Computed example of a mutant assay.
Amino acid sequence: MAQQVRGVIARGRGEPVTVETIVVPEPGPGEAVVKVQACGVCHTDLHYREGGINDEFPFLLGHEAAGVVESVGEGVSGLEPGDFVVLNWRAVCGDCRACRRGRPWYCFSTHNAAQPMTLTDGTPLSPALGIGAFAEKTLVHSGQCTKVDPEARAAAVGLLGCGVMAGIGAAINTGGVGRGDSVAVIGCGGVGDGAVAGARLAGAAKIIAVDTDARKLEWARGFGATHTIDARAVDDVVTAIQELTDGNGADVVIDAVGRPETWKQAFYARDLAGTVVLVGVPTPDMRIEMPLIDFFSRGGALKSSWYGDCLPTRDFPMLVDLYRQGRLDLDAFVTEEIALDEVEAAFGKMHHGDVLRSVVVF
């Protein structure tokens, strides 16, 4: 039976979001209805509201979520009502060329729920990243539900659903940070601090956090940064990173901002044969012009990180276990807990850099 619940809707480009009644259908084959317990306010949700993803309004926002499975549809196995899950937006298909080659974290045909959630007048909603979790309940594909330790705090582990996982994975999965490496992270919001935490987990010897905000640099220290650089206070970020790495540059440099100027800093701030990881999301209009010889002569690897190249079934339970053991402080990412009708205000705080994450708690 379909249910009516409250959800956060973006009706038009740049318009303030509203809390409205939405209709969540009974799960069909391969689907699940999840009672959401907590959902983080991610910059991607703001991108949706601003029309920066696509124009398929109205959107049901929210995607960094954890909750409890309420019901499942026909053919669902390995998932049942009562399971505590973190939602993910890359439910692998198992069939595409990436999956068949044993690289499911690159899956090119990920699953979402087949049925739409709607407004009460029948207008279909576009759920953010196929999830739509700024709602008391949401309909997802069962593969978007990853079971984790039910004793974990929903407000903390739900953040693995996007930004924190993207950052941790950018360091560990994409960047391949190893013991004794030097790492620089440019941009220390939620994703950047995730990368700092990931580098620390991987055993990096030197972790350099770069930002223009003293508060964010202090947060980065809490997640494991050994050195910080205030980009406003130095003549050149590249030189500052080199000075902290014996003049060589870092083994891995992670751009968690996603702008041409920060990517160039990352490129030139790495050691010879070092690795650049782009995890910050650029806009379609951004361009880079550089000497091609610099790409050849410096060697190494230039990588983009999709969702931290994570495999939710592998990575979420492992990271939740590390959290439960006290080795990964996911609670520190939660700046504030808010109600559903405070999402619009949370966008403002995020835009001004006042929070790492506001988290809606139901």
Rank of each mutant, 00 (worst) to 15 (best):
Ile254Asn: 09
Asp329Asn: 13
Val234Glu: 04
Gly75Glu: 05
Ile186Cys: 05
Ile241His: 09
Glu337His: 03
Val164Arg: 03
Ala10Ser: 15
Asp236Met: 08
Asp354Lys: 15
Thr228Ala: 09
Glu56Tyr: 04
Val92Asn: 15
Leu322Gln: 08
Gly158Pro: 05
Gly192Trp: 06
Asp55Ala: 14
Ala66Trp: 02
Ala66Tyr: 07
Lys303Asn: 09
Leu330Val: 00
Arg287Glu: 12
Gln144Gly: 15
Trp105Gly: 12
Leu302Asn: 09
Phe267Ala: 08
Val238Ile: 10
Gln242Asn: 12
Val23Met: 10
Gly176Ile: 00
Val34Gly: 12
Gly30Trp: 02
Arg298Thr: 09
Thr262His: 06
Pro124Met: 11
Ala339Leu: 01
Thr118Lys: 14
Glu218Trp: 00
Met165Gln: 14
Gly187Tyr: 02
Lys264Thr: 04
Phe362Ser: 12
Phe134Pro: 01
Arg97Glu: 14
Pro291Tyr: 14
Cys162Tyr: 01
Glu344Asn: 14
Tyr268Ser: 05
Pro16Asp: 10
Val276Ser: 13
Gly132Trp: 00
Val281Asp: 00
Gly73Ala: 10
Thr262Asp: 12
Val23Asp: 06
Ala231Trp: 00
Gly308Asp: 08
Thr262Lys: 01
Val183Asp: 05
Thr18Ser: 15
His141Val: 10
Thr146Glu: 04
Asp271Ala: 13
Arg13Glu: 15
Val148Ala: 13
Thr226Trp: 08
Ala170Cys: 04
Ala152Glu: 06
His352Ser: 15
Thr245Lys: 12
Phe347Tyr: 14
Gly12Thr: 04
Phe347Asp: 04
Ala250Asn: 07
Glu344Asp: 14
Leu292Arg: 06
Ala332Gly: 02
Ala2Val: 02
Tyr106Ala: 14
Ala199His: 01
Val185Asn: 13
Ser71Phe: 01
Arg287Lys: 11
Val85Asp: 06
Gly30Phe: 03
Trp306Pro: 11
Gly62Met: 07
Lys206Cys: 10
Ile172Gln: 03
Val183Arg: 09
Cys310Asn: 14
Leu322Arg: 10
Ala345Gln: 09
Gly12Gln: 14
Val24Ser: 12
Gly176Lys: 03
Ile208Asn: 09
Gly94Asn: 11
Thr110Asp: 13
Thr120Ile: 07
Asp251His: 12
Ala250Lys: 03
Pro116Glu: 02
Met286Gly: 11
Asp230Trp: 00
Arg215Ile: 01
Cys107Ser: 11
Arg327Lys: 14
Thr212Leu: 09
Val33Cys: 08
Gln242Val: 01
Asp230Leu: 02
Arg357Trp: 01
Val19Trp: 07
Ala171Thr: 03
Glu20Asp: 15
Leu217Ile: 11
Ala240Met: 04
Ile53His: 10
Phe296Lys: 09
Phe59Trp: 14
Arg232Met: 10
Ala195Leu: 06
Tyr106Leu: 15
Glu31Thr: 06
Gly353Ser: 13
Thr18Asn: 09
